[in-house]
Design a protein around this nucleic acid. Structure first.
Length: 863
RNA sequence: GCCGAAGUGGUGGAAUUGGCAGACACACCAGACUUAGGAUCUGGCGCCUGCGGGCAUGGGAGUUCGAGUCUCCCCUUCGGUACCA
């Protein structure tokens, strides 16, 4: 039944069809079994899969298949994050419809994923661009609106010109758009916001309650949420009513304030400077600031710049009068938009004071040092004792923070305060290919949600997509002209669509009951499957997607729709797939086929210049260092591709592409095939050996023992996601069988051979499922491997008869002795002391101490 | 600047708790089989060596009978983040 040669393509197609026909990966809630929800981040349907997908989904598939074999009821779904701008851009370029483009891509990528043999329950497939999906997103939006969790406001937003849309703060990287990389500018716009900041504290607190997440990711989330603890302090306005609120993390330094500085956008700047001699200068400064891009202002490590606005403030603690400035380094959107300037104890304030010749009184004296205002070259930001601070003199800075805040609170001039860096999530997008926001603007009634019976608000198919600009829905009268659901008068439908990150913030819940058309999800199904036991994806989603998903889960919990706060119990962030780049001084990055590597020094085939075979970087089209998975599948098949991805590097680390590495993976599978051919006749028609070890010959006993040891090692390695060492353990076993066969000691006992072949088959089946299925069937096995239990190892069969004991003298390896595994400590010690190597190095010295570690080593300490 | 992770042969990487550093693989070298080998099988493969051994996990100190692993300092690389008050 097994063919002479391993022919992957034939085998793979056959088993993929078989699995599909039998529906072996279909799952249902089964309360008899423990559940395991395994999820990989779903892809954007760009058209074809890349190596990053292959790696991500291979890791997931190994775990899914393994967990099934370990008796879990495994939910392993796949779907499409299908809304987004590439579809729209492609539509404009190719004159197709985004929907057509998207569905074609989905079909193509589905075909590719199927070719890789992933064990998905395809019956649960979903695409976020279908009305069946986004209908529930609109439903939830309305529910959030009714509870005040979503609101509308006009403010400055990040605007990307090429993409013609708004970006959330999380979507701006280094002042540039996360998708197209172009610089982002600020624009004032009416936008819908999710009140994610309401959950800032809760999201932060639970970062420490996610032991299954990499610390790296929780740290990034904590930093993003960015909580600062300090105080709000109210400075009085000299000669006027009211005051200026500043936020500071260092209330202990308040007596060292020598100025107050406002953000240029702060309303008090114009109000206070009006009518003063400085008014003209202030206006000029504000105009200059307005002209400068706000992000540019933030990016530049620009020199501090400001202007005195002609007014003075009163320090509520010291009573001192200080000048008020407007300055470029103060941000309106953080804190209160105003700061107290303490030059001696804050570096920014120090720089600003240096430029405008402001005082820098010292109010914190560090231990064992004496700071002098005159001689300081940098601010002292460490701890110390308070000086020049009136009644607070002598206190330590840490204690003074609370004391001063309390003192201020008692006098109604301030209080302890907390600030978060996290801002509300702006989700309006002025684009077409997204979920319409289900709201109607009525002149009489204000903002009115679309009634539930009218959901979904379908995305119209006939919107015109314009090369540059304007919201496509905003130009489509048939879409926006509606009657107010409340008063019936003419009203206007909201023409923005939602950020596509909204769809990916709850898709994991929808997989539990993807066909449910009466609710966002079936409560019972969610109760059974959620939370996701293991989530796998790229670390690039550490902030955006993972934070939004945690937020959404909290919203649903607050609404009583789910009974947990954290959607993902365990998270694995896999590394990138990288490859070396080749650069020509004239033509830039080159494709490998544009280079002649045959010469001593490789050169560019276009211009003959010598090229640099450069850094190993993430595979990307622009760097021209991509490997197309389709090519691998055609050449080696899915099993080899999967094996390579798992063997070449541990999952969290970057995987460096290697042509010869793939060859190696292919070679190993061929070797396994030959091993099976060698023993399949002996092993056919018998049961795996399960008797007494003493009934076996020495050689068979060694193989049998090694097989059991390998079963244990592989299970433990997969449990902790060390797929590379799991595979190497099987390689060792295969090597051992080959080399014992070479010595003329091939396996004699048919049961031992059977046990070996079956074990190899089970152990490799999560990695190379097609080939193993073929072998299993060829050996006369019944059923499908995923439905089988993982073979258990026998404790008694793991035990070695003899152990190798390392003999050290003063910690250096000097000899090795082989002893029966059950030898007692005295025997071990005696044998070690008598060993040749030990004797030689102990000569002329006296033994001080002998350390015996049973089963491992003896260390003889001499002097 | 701040936060985090990582530095081990020519290369990718092993080494659950402190206990033989370099498993497994790639590359390379040699042998066997062969008309042939880019197939297969077998063996070798950290560096130095006077063949006794010595030195080796980014560098330096420390703890320990014993350190890739623990502690402290420093260096490099890669991520994240930044006038956040």
């Amino acid at each position: 039944m097994l063919s002479e040669n391993y022919s992957p393509l034939e085998i793979e197609e056959k088993w993929q069809q078989q699995w599909e026909a039998e529906g072996v990966f279909r799952v249902h809630e089964d309360r008899a079994k423990p559940k395991y929800y395994l999820l990989e981040m779903f892809p954007y349907p760009s058209g074809k899969i890349h190596m990053g997908h292959v790696r991500n989904y291979t890791i997931g598939d190994v775990v899914a298949r393994y967990k099934r074999m370990r008796g879990f009821n495994v939910l392993h779904p796949m779907g499409w994050d299908a809304f987004g701008m590439p579809a729209e851009n492609a539509a404009i370029q190719n004159k197709t419809h985004p929907a057509a483009w998207t569905y074609e891509n989905i079909a193509a990528m589905r075909r590719q994923l199927k070719r890789l043999g992933f064990s998905y329950d395809w019956d649960r497939e979903l695409a976020t661009c279908t009305p069946e999906y986004y209908r529930w997103e609109q439903w939830l939006f309305i529910r959030m609106f009714e509870k005040g969790m979503v609101y509308r406001k006009e403010s400055f937003v990040n605007w990307c010109d090429p993409c013609q849309t708004v970006l959330a703060n999380e979507q701006v990287e280094d002042g540039a758009c996360w998708r197209c990389g172009k610089e982002v500018r600020q624009k004032k716009l009416w936008q819908w916001y999710f009140r994610i900041t309401d959950f800032a504290q809760d999201l932060l607190d639970h970062c420490d309650l996610l032991p299954g997440w990499p610390e790296k990711v929780t740290t990034m989330q904590k930093n993003w949420i960015g909580k600062s603890t300090g105080a709000r302090i109210r400075f009085g306005l000299e000669g006027l009513e009211g005051g200026i609120d500043v936020f500071t993390t260092r209330p202990d330094t308040v007596c060292g304030a020598s100025f107050v500085c406002l953000a240029p956008e702060h309303p008090l700047v114009t109000a206070l400077s009006a009518g003063t001699p400085q008014a003209g200068e202030v206006t000029a400064f504000l105009e200059k600031m307005a002209r400068q891009e706000r992000t540019a202002r933030a990016i530049e490590t620009a020199e501090k710049e400001g202007v005195f606005i002609g007014a003075f403030a009163t320090n509520p603690v010291s009573g001192k009068s200080v000048p008020i400035y407007a300055g470029n380094f103060v941000l309106m959107e953080y804190g209160t938009g105003a700061v107290m300037g303490v030059p001696a104890h804050d570096q920014r304030d120090f720089d600003f004071a240096a430029r405008y010749a402001l005082d820098r009184p010292v109010v914190i004296q560090p231990e064992g040092e004496k700071l002098e205002s005159i001689s300081m070259t940098a601010a002292w930001t460490g701890p110390g004792r308070l000086v020049n601070s009136g009644i607070f003199d002598g206190m330590d800075s840490e204690g003074a923070k609370a004391a001063i805040a309390d003192w201020l609170e008692a006098r109604n001039a301030g209080e302890k305060a907390e600030r978060f860096r996290l801002r509300d999530w702006g989700i309006s997008r002025q684009r077409y290919w997204g979920s319409p926001i289900p709201m109607i603007h009525c002149e009489a009634c204000g903002i009115v949600p679309v009634p539930e019976k009218d959901l979904p608000v379908r995305l119209p198919e006939d919107a015109a997509l314009l090369e540059n600009g304007g919201s496509p829905l905003g130009a489509l009268a048939s879409f926006y002209e509606v009657d107010c659901p409340r008063c019936g008068k003419k009203a206007r439908r909201d023409t923005d669509t939602m950020d596509t990150f909204v769809e990916s913030s709850w898709y994991f819940l929808r997989y539990c009951s993807p066909a449910c058309d009466t609710a966002i999800f079936d409560t019972e199904a969610v109760r059974y499957w959620m939370p996701v036991d293991q989530y796998i994806g790229g670390v690039e989603h550490a902030v955006m997607h993972l934070l939004y998903s945690r937020y959404f889960t909290r919203v649903l919990e607050a609404e009583g729709l789910v009974s947990f706060k954290e959607p993902f119990t365990n998270l694995l962030t896999q590394g990138m797939v990288c490859k070396e780049t080749t650069t020509c001084p004239v033509h830039g990055f080159l494709y490998p086929e544009e280079v002649d590597f045959g010469q001593e020094k490789p050169f560019c085939l276009k211009c003959q210049s010598p090229v640099t075979v450069g850094r190993v970087e993430k595979m990307s089209k622009s760097k021209r260092n991509v490997v197309d998975p389709a090519m691998l599948l055609d050449r080696y098949g899915a099993d080899t591709t999967r094996l390579f991805c798992l063997f070449a590097a541990p999952p969290e680390r970057d995987l460096e592409w290697s042509d010869t590495g793939v060859e190696g993976a292919y070679r190993f599978l061929n070797r396994v095939w030959r091993l099976v051919l060698r023993y399949k006749d002996v092993a056919s028609g018998v049961q795996p050996f399960d008797g007494e070890l003493s009934d076996l010959s020495q050689a068979d006993r060694d193989i049998f023992r090694k097989t059991h040891q390998t079963l244990k090692r592989v299970a433990e390695d997969i449990d902790r996601f060390h797929f590379n060492t799991a595979i190497s353990a099987v390689m060792e076993l295969v090597n051992a069988v080959f080399s014992s066969g070479e010595k003329g000691e091939g396996i004699e006992n048919a049961g031992v051979a059977r046990h070996l072949l079956e074990s190899v088959c089970f152990m490799l089946s999560p990695v190379a499922p097609h080939m193993m299925e073929e072998i299993w069937a060829g050996l006369g096995g019944s059923g499908r491997l995923v439905e089988k239990g993982w073979p258990l190892w026998r404790e008694d069969a793991l035990q070695e008869e003899n152990v190798l004991i390392v003999v050290q003298v003063n910690g250096k390896l000097r000899d090795r002795v082989t002893l029966p595994a059950d030898a007692d400590e005295e025997t071990i010690k005696a044998q070690a002391l008598a060993s040749e190597g030990a004797v030689r190095f102990m000569e002329g010295k006296s033994v001080k101490k002998v350390i015996v570690v049973r089963g491992k080593l003896v260390n003889i300490v001499v002097a």
